[in-house]
Design a protein around this nucleic acid. Sequence first.
DNA 1: ATCAATTGCGTTATGCTATAACGTGTGCAA
DNA 2: TTGCACACGTTATAGCATAACGCAATTGAT
Lengths: 132, 132
Amino acid sequence: MNAPQLTRNQALVFDVLEKAEGPLSAYTILDKLRDQGFRAPLQVYRALDKLLEYGVVHRLESINSFVACAHPGEDCHSHGIVAFAICESCGQVIEFHDHEVDHRLMGWVRSQKFKPAKTTIEIRGTCEACAA
Amino acid sequence: MNAPQLTRNQALVFDVLEKAEGPLSAYTILDKLRDQGFRAPLQVYRALDKLLEYGVVHRLESINSFVACAHPGEDCHSHGIVAFAICESCGQVIEFHDHEVDHRLMGWVRSQKFKPAKTTIEIRGTCEACAA
DNA sequence: ATCAATTGCGTTATGCTATAACGTGTGCAA
DNA sequence: TTGCACACGTTATAGCATAACGCAATTGAT
Ligand SMILES: [Zn+2]
Ligand SMILES: [Zn+2]
Ligand SMILES: [Zn+2]
Ligand SMILES: [Zn+2]
């Protein structure tokens, strides 16, 4: 999915995510956009839905938060499953891909005749900088 | 983590999960236990916390639900990362392990000096039976 | 036996996450 | 012009999770 011209709300939400140090919850985004006229969660969720569809934002299922894609222009989704390492101390997120992991998972999926729609890989832990 | 004797509440929650066809949300579990005297979400969440700690129940992050471990007695967690395929049509969950996936992910983690605490792999899609 | 610490439990209240439902306005194509 | 698709705004509601309090039972020293 290629991203068309963003609407005002989509652009505002994307901008907040891009400038953020780490992942943000929808309600945190809402708070950051009150000055721009945002009033209700739905304004954020609707924008996020589109940004997710365009592939420029990822949802982190294990922490109910959202991040801007770390590989803009590469069309992440076209080269396999996206994985995330999430530091529970500083909130930093590292986005990466591993083709071998993709192959193994997709091999298993095929053997089970399971039709995958969306795959989540999230490693929560402590990043190098935060390690005691 | 080996499971000690379960308390009454823990046993009730585990029993509900074991008998269920698929994953259940905490509030669904609560509803199923009203007749046994359950009144508040916390009674469920506290039991779930322990069952998760003992490794006899898994949490599915992408759907905010819980399932009984499909490999009782095998101590899932000791032989690597647990992965789930979740059918969005019938709710069935298949729990599996893949050492190669573990190795790849743990290799990446080591190369980044990232300290993993909890890893989530969830494939949402359609199972063979539900495929059109 | 007694005291202190731990653990489980019950209850109330609250906070966080997400969507339903309704109505408005705008742009575009038949 | 009419109909449709889409974004938007607002209010209300649904669904998920935890804080904080107090009490009771258990355990494990002393
Ligand atoms: Zn990406
Ligand atoms: Zn960190
Ligand atoms: Zn298991
Ligand atoms: Zn199915």
